[in-house]
Design a binder for these strands. Structure first.
Lengths: 343, 343
DNA sequence: TTGTAAGCGTTATCAT
DNA sequence: ATGATAACGCTTACAA
């Protein structure tokens, strides 16, 4: 009748406490706030724990305390260089803190995102970092119910769930295209792949700039839903050039595409920038090393990750930022691939 | 005197059970194995849970059941393209399973790795994926004490902690260098950055091949502990070429370095492969798109990630692979950058 | 198929 | 600074 659980065979806090000659709660305090103990007990608990090889049980801790030290992170892709920089920032900001990261991959799917948010809900994370600002209504409800600090990253917009760190993709693209216009390029193509919400906004920025200059022509736009790659850049460029032979510049939604264009130009002996200017997006490391060096829009990905985690950790400690939305901006890195063109 | 915990305000399993008119354990079974309930109770529990907005508490579950559905993954870097492919494989293999990933970053530090392993120990993960085979003795002790399936990935060797999926970096490098030798290149440089254990083994493979051909010359080797990058590739190449002006080929420990070499050759009007052959390592996507296309060693990174998780999940279910060590091999992707050279 | 009873290992609360 | 007690929400073991 009585319960006969197979004994865990695991060292518990109680046993450490017994060996140290203190109560369990004192031993518990030792692991969370050693300063709170008298020097004598502190040492006794410490040596008892070491002697028994005690390993605290995080699940028990989470259940008893009703909180965890896990920060959930939702990103849409792991293939993307862009997110590896964000992640680096995230993990760097974490360094030395007591938090750990639970990273999940939404695969650019809002339904997947919704599922994963529900999973997090069951986990009571201490905080959450979510990519983008286009969550489904249900996702928003879940997030609002979660009662923990949440930072939306990569872009900014009105109506944050809680906090935001990012920049305006629209403005960044507008600025890149305006740069080409200012340098006398006129027939500027747009090359886009895997048109996620942020890439869509870059397209809007392109359109705005071209329309403002009275040079908008929908034939200059080519996109594909397929994931991005260097070779895809070459292909898009080749296709567009066939349709628009007088194209004199391209704005690429990312640097991989820009590199693919450069290679395609080399292959076809198209001189860059004399016959074709190239501007990329994100400013990955190779852009400056290319021949010619490629102009790009630097986005502060590492800082976004770092800031997001700092904001979450601060908010957990009750420190709210002055403004809930942080615009990290962007910088146009002008290089040889978009040298001024004679008018 | 009695405990007055601030009520959680949270819907518990008990309440769902009460509303459904069943015992808590029946409700519990519904969430873990709905088939085990009679159709009537199943529906009543389901609607009760929905009505109350029940969210299970994973910590309570973990404590009561003494297990979690988290697989821990330790990787040394997030900046590295190589690991983003491994991660993609990992997350793809996970899709649809009940497991989630806890990803941690060792930063190529064995001490950090040891710390993180201890942290995992407190978490009772269902399984573990660890990068490389060079853990510290203490790390090995922790892993052996963890009593869960463990897969070491990226390389293979004797004496696995539990299971392994990878390939021989030594053989892969040997094969790449042998290819250059077979095509009549003689003064083959070695360019290496961030010399982690696997890169060290590639250096050994290079040495073995050059020695076997009677062409080994330590002056042909240049390395740096600094992290890898495209521009670093250009710099290493430039430095080595100054020291060894008659160099006719380079074996680069990764593709970023190879791309940097290509750009540097373009900059200096060194013809590839006529004046300089280039071979990279990993076969990132851009290698085939470059001009000329760059020869590289394809490593099955995605498959390593996928296999690792499949092996862990199978082992959790008691299914052990026939062999504990899986060699995924490599393929030499021969392209224009290493065309045969007239003898 | 369903239920009863007893914990899982820790921490919050209150008191000293 | 330390301790006694009662949970935290769920599942295991066993019985029916």
């Amino acid at each position: 009748m009585a319960r006969q659980r197979t004994t865990t065979g695991k060292v518990r806090l109680t046993e450490v406490a017994k060996l140290a000659g203190v109560s369990p709660i004192t031993a518990s305090r030792f692991f969370r706030n050693p300063e709170a103990l008298s020097a004598g007990k502190r040492e006794r608990v410490e040596s008892a724990a070491r002697e028994l090889g005690y390993v605290p049980d995080l699940a028990a801790r989470a259940l008893a305390s009703q909180r965890t030290e896990v920060i959930g992170v939702l990103i849409p892709s792991l293939t993307n260089n862009v997110f590896s920089d964000v992640l680096r920032g995230i993990y760097d900001a974490l360094q030395g803190s007591r938090y750990s990261i639970q990273l999940v991959n939404t695969r650019y799917s809002f339904l997947q995102e919704e599922k994963l948010l529900r999973l997090f809900q069951a986990q009571r994370p201490a905080g959450l970092v979510v990519t983008g600002i286009n969550q489904t209504p249900d996702s928003r409800l879940v997030m609002e119910a979660m009662n923990c600090p949440i930072v939306q990253i990569m872009e900014i917009g009105p109506d944050p769930v809680d906090m935001m760190v990012g920049f305006s993709h629209n403005k960044a693209a507008f600025s890149a295209v305006s740069h080409l216009l200012a340098r006398n390029y006129r027939r500027i193509g747009f090359l886009g792949a895997r048109m996620d919400p942020r890439v869509q906004r870059r397209l809007e920025g392109y359109r705005d700039a071209m329309k403002a200059a009275g040079l908008y022509d929908p034939r200059l736009i080519i996109t594909t839903p397929v994931p991005t790659s260097v070779s895809m850049g070459g292909m898009l460029f080749a296709d567009l050039l066939t349709l628009v032979p007088d194209m004199d510049a391209v704005f690429c939604v990312n640097d991989d595409i820009a590199l693919g264009v450069l290679f395609e130009c080399q292959r076809r002996q198209i001189s860059v920038p004399d016959d074709m200017a190239i501007v990329g997006f994100n400013d990955l490391e190779f852009m400056a090393a290319a021949v010619p060096p490629l102009t790009s829009v630097r986005t502060n990905r590492y800082e976004m990750g770092r800031n997001a985690i700092s904001m979450v950790m601060a908010a957990i400690d009750g420190e709210r930022p002055e403004a809930p939305v942080i615009d990290l901006g962007f910088q146009l890195m002008v290089r040889g691939s978009s040298s001024p063109r004679p008018a």
